[in-house]
Design a protein around this nucleic acid. Structure first.
Length: 772
DNA sequence: CAGACAGCACTTTTT
DNA sequence: GTGCTGTCTG
């Protein structure tokens, strides 16, 4: 597509702007749009209209006829950002027959790799492994090497792998003293083995998408040159988040021209670099001017979002960081707005309660719930907030919770589909061979794996061979024969059937739906719903391959949830969003800044945490409410805490300190730095304090909220019955999945002795029966 | 082979 | 405190 001839033809096309697109841009923004030629760095502070500039710039290039849409490459980090960009560009320019190449780094790299798969040793529809598959694969390798998984967790190695790949290191490039760190020097070999294994599976992991693409470019200059001709303009969003591999990838694509003439525009904010831990190199943005000599730099500092007080607080905090490019946000609005509020509370429960009250208060004053958000440092802080909101009956929405496509039933269904699409996908095969239960246990699987390894073929092929022999027990043999023919059948039908129908048939015929139907647990209904939702989400895909590609890259599901709800999410996932009211709980040293971050990365870690604080504060339009608990339970243990050092860094004249009555033996605001060393224990009688009593009382009162709908999903909350009361009485008629109906004879804690009508007297756990 | 139980890690953030 | 994994047992 887009060869010279078609490109010539299509150039006749004239595009129109759907609006006067330059209107309303300030001089800096305007310049950032108009400066299309040569390298450009746009340093855009929070709320300065960065996205708008990016989109207008794309539109401008097209409308001016400088390039056709498909000659533009625009990359983002998150799927969300990519979606938004596509949406807005589409509506900006009419007609838009073909969109620019817009998407995440990973999806763009995947798109390129698909086109040239065979050049990097992949065939056709290769699989993109997610983290879960990755871990399982590593476990197998560890097993083969006789490495104790307890001592050397697969997860840890996965982390190392990711780190290497983020830095663009192939197995041969990893410094030995790093790879030697794992499993007494076996790390390097494991990386080799891992890659070899991926090749036989015809699969890549996330990191490989970029790495293999880089290799492709390096080993095939002609292909790279093709992309040089194709992409006349490149744009990168959130450049501060790019890692080394992504940098190398961009660099290669930009090499069509001399560095000083490359039409590459990167937009970012060094103060919002919060992904250092996963390999993002702030250096990339700090270095841009030397990477691309003569680069123009435009700073966007005029903030359109927040009050002066909020900007002041954010600027004051971030000013403490070293190694910044240095921007200062300002606003034209004269009024300072509400001061930032800081409140110290007794414990996290009181914190949740306070936030709940305030949310209700603002709601009564006419603020929609949608305009409020609670931003936490870590997800464990969410539970108490959720519980509180449930008690209050406040509608809330959790962003970034368990992902749809990571649910067990969804992954099972996907494994079936993957195996249909790609018979060499052994990981998928292992996942579903005995799901639903078919009597194919470990011993059978082991046999298959041995055969597969011997013949050097995928498991499914090995199975085909084995069922023709006498090596398997008759029962397993016929089960497997049936399974293989089912897969053949599905593959055959899949040629003509739309994917969403295929998945329904597979789930039905494989017995998966029966398995769920037989499962009387609370979740099974939800699982069925999720599978229905999966099928629905597949309706827009014409081919199975297309769908699988999509889900492996887009693990999040755009939830078009229109209902009015408070948002609860992490600071990380809040980047790029804005709310009238922002609550920032948990500003305690150790929680935020996170202890771990500081332990692992020292000063750099602290600075990244500080940027996180900056991101958090700048999400607020009208008001920001910060709080810290004096006591917090970490790993089930109560620990006292002192307010975050960031609290001390706030400008006093933009902050209002509220002391909740229950603040006890307080470390007051402003005392943080000094009192950090004051370890006199103000909590010796913690258990007698009003706060504690209240906490206990509330705990006892708390009945599980039952199922409730969040983002349209059925979420079941477990009910804490607080120990003894089982809810059953002697003589109650109950139903047990396996033993059928029966009557309770005796109760011993949560163990019930039941006289079953058919199965006789059995002792079972309460959780396995339901009221009959 | 399935269910029960003990032991353990987990609480940073994601493509 | 919770939820997962792996092992033991019937």
């Amino acid at each position: 597509m887009g060869g010279p001839i078609t490109s010539q033809l299509k150039r006749q096309q004239t595009y129109r702007a759907s609006v006067d697109y330059m209107a309303g841009l300030n001089p800096e923004q305007r310049e950032a749009v108009l400066q299309t030629e040569g390298p450009l760095l746009v340093l855009a502070g929070a709320g300065t209209g960065k996205t708008r500039v990016l989109i207008t710039r794309i539109a401008h290039i097209v409308l001016e006829g400088r390039a056709e849409p498909w000659e533009i490459l625009a990359v983002t980090f998150t799927n969300k950002a990519a979606r938004e960009m596509k949406e807005r560009v589409k509506n900006f320019v009419t007609p838009m027959p073909e969109l620019p190449w817009m998407g995440t780094f990973h999806s763009m790299a995947a798109r390129i790799l698909r086109t040239h798969a065979e050049l990097v040793g992949l065939t056709g529809p290769f699989t993109i492994l997610d983290t879960d598959d990755q871990i399982r694969l590593i476990k197998q390798l560890l097993d083969a090497e006789n490495i104790d998984e307890k001592r050397w967790p697969a997860r840890q190695f996965a982390g190392m792998l990711d780190g290497w790949k983020n830095r663009g290191l192939l197995p041969k490039d990893v410094p030995e003293r790093e790879s030697d760190d794992f499993a007494n020097g076996k790390g390097g070999k494991l990386y080799y083995d891992y890659q070899a294994r991926l090749k036989t599976l015809n699969a890549v992991d996330f990191g490989d998408l970029l790495l293999e693409c880089i290799r492709l470019f390096r080993e095939n200059p002609d292909i790279l040159a093709g992309y040089h001709r194709k992409f006349k303009y490149m744009l990168v969003d959130e450049y501060q988040d790019s890692n080394t591999a992504q940098y190398l990838w961009l660099r290669l694509l930009a090499q069509g021209k001399r560095a000083s003439e490359a039409n590459i525009c990167v937009v970012g904010d060094d103060d919002q670099s919060i992904y250092g831990w996963r390999g993002a190199e702030v250096d990339n943005i700090l270095r841009f001017e030397s990477d691309f000599p003569g680069a123009k730099v435009i700073k966007l500092e005029r903030n359109y979002r927040s009050t002066a007080n909020i900007l002041k607080a954010a600027s004051t905090i971030i000013a403490r960081n070293e190694g910044r490019l240095g921007k200062t946000l300002f606003t034209d609005i004269a009024e300072p707005g509400e001061p930032i509020s800081f409140t110290q509370v007794y414990d996290s429960e009181e914190e949740a309660r306070t936030i709940g009250e305030e949310v209700e208060q603002y709601q009564r004053a006419g603020e929609p719930l949608n305009s409020m958000a609670v931003l936490v440092r870590a997800s464990f802080q969410m539970r108490e907030l959720e519980e509180r909101f449930i008690t209050l009956g406040l509608n809330y929405r959790v962003v970034g919770g368990p992902r749809f496509y990571e649910r067990k039933e969804i992954r099972d269904a996907l494994a079936y589909l993957r195996l249909v699409a790609q018979p060499a996908d052994d990981l998928a095969f292992e996942r579903i061979i005995n799901v639903p239960k078919r009597g194919l246990g470990d011993s059978t699987v082991k046999l298959l794996m041995e055969a597969a390894r011997h013949q050097n073929v995928p498991l499914l092929s090995a199975t085909r061979m084995l069922i023709e022999t006498e090596e398997l027990k008759p029962k397993q043999r016929s089960t497997l024969r049936g399974l293989v023919s089912q897969f053949d059948n599905w593959a055959y039908r899949g040629e003509n059937l739309p994917p969403y129908q295929l998945v329904e048939q597979i789930l039905e015929e494989s017995g998966y739906m029966d398995m769920l139907a037989a499962d009387k647990s609370v979740e099974s209904q939800g699982r069925k719903e999720n599978l229905k939702e999966l099928s629905r989400s597949m309706e827009e895909f014409e081919t199975l391959g297309g769908f699988l590609e999509h889900i492996s890259l887009v693990m999040d599901r755009d939830s078009a949830d229109a209902s009015d709800a408070v948002t609860i999410m992490t600071l990380h996932s809040a980047k790029g969003l804005e709310f009238n009211t922002v609550f920032l709980p948990g500003w305690e040293d150790g929680t935020f800044p996170s202890q771990r971050s500081m332990d692992e990365s020292g000063r750099a870690g602290l600075e990244e945490e500080r940027r996180l604080a900056y991101v958090g504060i700048t999400r607020g339009r009208k008001r920001v409410r910060i709080s810290a608990a004096q006591n917090r339970r970490i790993h089930g243990l109560w620990q006292s805490a002192i307010p975050s050092r960031f609290v001390d860094e706030l400008p006093p004249d933009a902050v209002e300190v509220t002391d909740r009555g229950s603040a006890y033996g307080g470390y007051g605001y402003g005392g943080g730095a000094a009192s950090r060393f004051n370890k006199a224990d103000p909590f010796e009688s913690v258990y007698e304090t009003p706060g504690w009593q209240r906490a206990r009382a509330n705990q006892a009162n708390r009945k599980g909220g039952g199922p409730l709908t969040i983002e349209g999903e059925l979420v079941a909350r477990s009910v804490d019955l607080g120990g003894q009361s089982s809810g059953y009485a002697l003589g109650d008629r109950v139903f047990h999945q396996k033993f059928g109906y029966g009557a309770i004879q005796s109760i011993e804690g949560n163990k019930l002795t039941i006289d079953f009508e058919k199965a006789g007297t059995k002792k079972v756990l309460e959780s396995f029966v339901s009221k009959g």
